[in-house]
């Protein structure tokens, strides 16, 4: 893959191995993402999704150690030569376990913690904090202790804290794992809004593929450390190999792929309704 100048994030032949392990967690990943991309990463556990996210925010290799080859470029600069503080200015991170991320006793402290570390003026902090909380729908929780929040509220707080840093890129590792269906939908709506209104680049790992189908521009499937498929959600869900890759298809897609393999499969509920109407109208066959 050639280096293009307008890539915000570029991985060139990037391989990585955690310390004290026998195998590479990532194997020769080539990926080039432009500013304004909305990319979903799916695949079975152990596929390397979290490691890929960590390679972009610098946790790999800065904190994890281990060995790597190839390179990760952020705005053309090699991530391993940047400090995590420098990476943190452009890449905001939301971990899969909000309890591992939240460190402060109350919601307000949690939100200002990152900003204080980067020396944001207090007047601006207030404004950023309000905006971040409002954009994930938890402005009413400002005075609460973080320990009293539900799993879903904690997940939203972690997103708000990342947003308060005004990152260029937001990387999220299964941000809806503890959310109910509508809460999950809300998170993706928030991401879409950030993407559309602020041109934010979004990278998200997710098991709920019906969300990826509807919200992402690009979907990447990983397996055992390798990038095995990449394309629009439609291209990926229509790919002949998708059944073998351990990824759940949206149910409408699964229905079509299993019983009507000749037809072009739907990937959203609305397309599914249209698809079934066509099936009914064709009577026999």
């Amino acid at each position: 893959m050639t280096t293009s100048n307008n890539s915000l994030i570029q991985l060139n032949n990037f391989s990585y191995q955690y310390p004290h392990t026998a195998n590479n967690a990532l194997k020769s990943i080539n990926l080039s993402l432009k500013k304004g991309s909305f990319v979903g990463f799916a695949g079975p556990t152990g596929a390397g999704k979290t490691t890929l996210i960590k390679s972009i925010n610098g946790i790999v290799p800065h904190f994890e150690g281990g060995t790597f080859s190839g390179e990760v470029l952020l705005n053309g600069k090699a991530a391993d030569t940047m400090s995590t503080a420098e990476i943190g200015r452009s890449v905001g991170t939301v971990l899969d376990d909000p309890e591992a991320q939240i460190i402060c006793l109350d919601v307000e402290q949690e939100l200002v913690f990152g900003m204080e570390n980067y020396g944001v003026p207090p007047a601006e902090m207030e404004q950023r904090m309000q905006k971040a909380l409002a954009s994930v729908g938890i402005a009413h929780l400002l005075g609460r202790s973080t320990a009293s929040l539900s799993g879903g509220q904690k997940q939203r707080l972690a997103i708000a804290a990342a947003l308060a840093m005004l990152p260029e890129v937001l990387v999220l590792d299964e941000p809806t794992s503890e959310l109910d269906p509508l809460g999950s939908e809300e998170v993706f709506r928030v991401l879409k809004q950030l993407h559309q209104e602020q041109g934010m680049t979004i990278l998200v790992t997710e098991q709920k593929t019906d969300l990826l189908a509807r919200y992402c521009d690009q979907l990447v499937i990983l397996r055992e450390g390798e990038m095995v498929l990449s394309g629009t959600p439609r291209e990926v869900f229509q790919h002949p190999d998708i059944f073998e890759l351990g990824v759940a298809l949206p149910e409408v897609t699964e229905l079509a792929r299993r019983y009507y393999p000749q037809a072009e499969p739907p990937i959203t509920l609305d397309e599914g309704v249209q698809f079934c109407r066509n099936v009914i109208q064709t009577f026999g066959g």
């Binding site: 695949g43 079975p44 556990t45 899969d96 299964e174 503890e178 098991q207 351990g246």
Partner: peptide, 8 residues
Amino acid sequence: TTGQDYQE
């Protein structure tokens, strides 16, 4: 099943 993939 939180944090588990489809097969798991």
